[in-house]
């Protein structure tokens, strides 16, 4: 229980101008995330869940509140702790763009909804997986290739396809390639935006299986945005339910799904079709 806090969000909010009206895409979101915890952010279109994800991953700046992360420096030690003697959490808004980009390439992963947005489509699968290592200075072709092969095995991709372009992969394979590409640097926190949406049901099942195993084996913390409650139940320890930019309910996944308190959560849960 003494794990260091990984991500701390306090009153995070983001607003947009629409015409001459101000609209809060998400507002007043607060939670803490610890290593190995998976948090599902659930809501329908327009709930603000994708905006929240982008705030957490520092792709958007908070207009209100803050997002703090336990940043480690290149040597793997807590940067803030050594610099300021605090608890180790650093406000993402204080980090330079260079640092944020480095963070996004090393300690974080981001799995996009459409694999094409998260992959380089014009280089081979192996190059996609090896890119982060090359960006960090890895310069041995043989070792890079070896790592790519082992990660392809781990995400159940046919290793014979290492030199094939991602465009020749199926949707499910592209997603798995995206996951491998993100995990090579052993990130502690992975953001996923609707990772299984749009895939065939059997492909979804296989991918969810893989994600469950990886989260378990690698002790990943993850924030998964999804509108599919079944995905939340399967993968997440905790849930955040969002409606119109606000968090209406949060807690243990099985508690929120089996004993929903808020009106909207009850509506969501009762609306799900079961075959």
């Amino acid at each position: 229980m003494n794990d260091d806090l990984l991500l701390s969000v306090r009153g995070a909010g983001k607003r947009f101008m629409q015409g001459n009206r101000l609209r809060w895409a998400c507002r007043d979101v607060s939670f803490d995330l610890y290593p190995g915890e998976v948090l599902a952010v659930v809501g329908e279109s327009g709930s603000g869940k994708s905006t929240l994800l982008r705030l957490l991953a520092a792709r958007l700046a908070c207009d209100e509140g803050s997002v703090h992360y336990d940043v480690r420096d290149e040597a793997g030690t807590a940067a803030a702790a050594s610099a300021a003697g605090e608890a180790g959490l650093v406000d993402l808004a204080q980090l330079s763009e260079a640092r944020l980009r480095w963070l996004a390439r090393t300690d974080w992963g981001f799995v996009e909804q459409h694999a094409r947005d998260g992959l380089r489509m014009n280089v081979s699968g192996g190059a996609n997986i090896g890119e982060r290592m090359m960006a960090l200075g890895s310069r041995h072709y043989g070792k890079l290739r070896g790592q790519a092969l082992s990660w392809m095995e781990r995400v159940e991709l046919d290793v014979d396809r290492i030199d094939d372009l991602p465009g020749t992969y199926s949707g499910g394979m592209q997603q798995r390639l995206q996951i491998a590409r993100n995990l090579v640097t052993h990130p502690r926190l992975v953001f996923m935006d609707e990772p299984t949406t749009g895939l065939d049901v059997s492909v979804q099942a296989r991918l969810l299986d893989l994600l469950r195993e990886l989260v378990d084996q690698l002790q990943l913390a993850a924030v998964i945005v999804t509108h599919d409650l079944a995905v939340a139940r399967l993968l997440a320890h905790r849930m955040l339910v969002m409606k119109d930019g606000q968090v209406v309910e949060q807690g243990l996944t099985d508690r929120v799904l089996d004993d929903p308190q808020h009106a909207y959560t009850q509506l969501l849960v009762s609306s799900v079709l079961t075959p």
Partner: peptide, 24 residues
């Protein structure tokens, strides 16, 4: 939540009425 999960993992076991099936 993570405390509850830790309690369930090591101290509190549960046999439910219906098995929740995980595909595959």
């Amino acid at each position: 939540p993570r405390e509850v999960l830790d309690v369930r993992r090591r101290t509190l076991g549960y046999v439910s009425q219906f098995l929740r099936v995980i595909p595959r």
